[in-house]
Amino acid sequence: MTGILAVQGAFAEHAHILDLLSENYVLIRKKQDIPQNLDRLILVGGESTVQSKLIYELDLFQILRDKISENMPVLGTCAGLILLAQEIRDQNQTCFGTLPVCVKRNAYGRQLGSFSHTGHIGEIQNFPMRFIRAPYIEKILDPEVRILNLTDQKITAVQYQNQIGIAFHPELTDDLRIHQLFLNL
């Protein structure tokens, strides 16, 4: 069963894409929502400070972190990428810390710096990318991390084992290919 972290942010948009792909899912707002057979997780866009606080305070941290460490497939978009990152620039506290990259939050500045672009994500050609107060990946911390996209020399999408981390928002488009890639992990 695919879980979508639904403590804050754009979880409905990810759910809509899974609906289009006829994939079952459960929205996770608290510990009791985590199904026994959770085998896939989406960490959604939103505010990473809010989400990471709620992950701890609603007792979601340990269970989800253990599953991710055991190689459960996970897709993190924008704030979700920040939750996965092993290091966050200018910030001591990280959340799951399972993806060996260093991210920079609000890397393009405030909302005036938000932009859209089209590019290749690994083998996926011409994917519409929506960057909303987005982070980017400043540094790769493990040679096994595969870079899926560079936009203006900045790393905006990576894969490491079963973790996909993306700085933009595939859930804001009607392009299903990144979700399909994730569901095939």
């Binding site: 948009e13 866009g45 939103g46 909302q111 938000s114 932009f115 929506r130 928002h169």
Partner: peptide, 21 residues
């Protein structure tokens, strides 16, 4: 050159990120 493309859509999308907050 990306800056002025669909600014209104990007602005609505920021509000989507605030949802549930």
């Amino acid at each position: 050159n990306h800056q002025n493309v669909d600014r209104y859509a990007l602005n609505k999308e920021l509000a989507q990120m605030l949802k549930g907050g």
